[in-house]
């Protein structure tokens, strides 16, 4: 969808900023917010670019860099932390050979961290493009990633 079409869905009021950003990010290949689009948003809402940037930088769900087709978000809030979230993070990093906030060369995966996803009894937990995977261990992570490589989101 073109940026202008997206913008035209909203009234030019600064309250709509977050929604607009979501909408644009969801419709951008690479799942991110391009600089020129952010400029257009600022123009459209008649607010400073720096304010748009402040919001983008505040919420971890927004990214200014292109991300993989699948964005993996590992929860690192206390319940998941206690259940070994950081080992799972190392697991992800070594299996995908990238660091947090990086994207695999094939453009498939990005690793990010997040705060509580609200399913703590399943800890440790991660999400991939909004689908939740709980009770992780290294074998399970391996399986999930293999399946995604084949284009399947089921385990």
């Amino acid at each position: 969808m073109k940026i202008d079409t997206i913008l035209s869905k909203y009234e030019p009021k600064s309250e709509n900023l977050i929604q607009i950003l979501h909408d644009i990010q969801d419709h951008t290949e690479g799942n991110y917010l391009k600089e020129e689009d952010l400029e257009k948003v600022a123009d459209y809402l008649k607010i400073p670019k720096s304010r748009v940037n402040g919001v983008v930088e505040f919420y971890s769900m927004f990214s200014k860099k292109p991300r993989g087709k699948y964005v993996i978000r590992l929860c690192k809030s206390p319940p998941c932390f206690v259940k070994g979230a950081f080992n799972m993070l190392d697991e992800l990093k070594s299996q995908l050979e990238i660091d947090v906030n990086e994207t695999t060369k094939d453009g498939l995966f990005t690793i990010e961290t997040t705060s509580c996803l609200g399913v703590c009894d399943e800890a440790p937990v991660m999400s991939i493009n909004n689908k939740i995977y709980g009770k992780l261990d290294s074998a399970k992570i391996k399986k999930i990633i293999e399946n995604y490589r084949k284009g399947k989101s089921e385990i």
Partner: peptide, 10 residues
């Protein structure tokens, strides 16, 4: 009246 700067990060 310029708004060049704002906060970033948490």
């Amino acid at each position: 009246g310029k708004g060049i700067i704002d906060f970033i990060g948490r």
